[in-house]
Amino acid sequence: MSQSIPFVEYLALGDSPHLVANECTACGARFFDRRNACANCFATGFRKVDIATEGEVRAFTIVSLAAPGIPVPFVSATVDCAGTSVRANLINVDPTPEAVHVGMKVRLALQPVGADGSGVEAVNFGFEPQR
């Protein structure tokens, strides 16, 4: 049986994959990276909160030029997941203006990004259109 690990520490794998944010206990601001203090109110208390797995595209761009080895074009988007803003790529969708639009309903999707010599697979996330 092969093992999978999350590509980013805020991706929870398992039976119900989801994202986990650090929420400021004082003002409720949410962050996906580690923080010593809240960028909104400067408080220092945080708790882990699960993020909704469905959302709506609020903004996007079709990337046509990237670093060597990165396949283009692809869609980079900001997705509103029940009030939490998530930056991610849209996957399983044509990277064209005809296929993507603001207001598009999307859901969290997993994508393997590589494996090491032992067969341990790294899994990242993106969002795909709701069908």
Rank of each mutant, 00 (worst) to 15 (best):
R30C: 13
A88V: 02
D94F: 01
T61H: 08
F32T: 11
H18E: 10
R47D: 01
L108P: 10
I91W: 04
I62Y: 10
L11G: 08
A99M: 08
M104G: 13
G126T: 08
G55T: 08
D94R: 13
E128I: 02
A122I: 01
V102H: 08
R34Y: 10
S76R: 03
S85A: 04
E54A: 03
G119W: 04
V20Q: 10
A122K: 14
V72P: 03
D15V: 09
P97S: 10
V113K: 12
A122M: 05
E121H: 06
C24F: 01
P97C: 09
C81A: 13
P95N: 08
F31R: 10
N40V: 06
R58A: 12
L108Y: 08
G45Y: 05
A12T: 15
A122P: 02
S4L: 01
D33I: 12
T84M: 00
S16K: 15
G14W: 06
A29R: 09
L19K: 00
L65P: 02
A39W: 02
F32D: 03
D94N: 09
R131T: 15
P17N: 13
A82G: 01
V79K: 04
V8M: 11
N40C: 02
M104R: 15
L108E: 06
V8P: 06
A12I: 13
F7K: 15
N40M: 09
V75W: 00
G103K: 13
F32H: 10
L108W: 02
P112Q: 07
A39N: 12
P68A: 10
E121T: 14
F31N: 12
T44F: 02
I91M: 04
E23H: 00
K48G: 11
K48Y: 02
V120R: 13
L110D: 07
V120Q: 11
T25S: 04
V100N: 14
G103S: 09
G69H: 03
P73I: 12
L65N: 11
C81G: 07
L110E: 07
A99W: 03
E56H: 06
S76W: 01
T84E: 03
L19T: 13
N92I: 09
A67E: 09
V113A: 09
H18M: 06
H18L: 07
P6T: 13
C27H: 04
N92Y: 02
V100R: 12
A26T: 14
F7S: 15
E121D: 03
A37P: 00
V57L: 11
T53E: 01
C27R: 08
V8R: 06
A115K: 14
A52G: 05
G114V: 09
G14N: 05
E98D: 15
E54V: 07
N124Q: 10
N92A: 06
Q111Y: 07
N89E: 11
V75Y: 02
L108A: 10
N36M: 10
P71H: 05
R30A: 07
G55P: 06
M1R: 12
D33R: 15
R34N: 11
I51G: 00
V123D: 01
D15Q: 08
M1N: 05
R30S: 04
V63I: 14
L108V: 14
V100E: 11
V72G: 06
T61E: 11
F46S: 04
L110N: 12
C27I: 11
R30K: 14
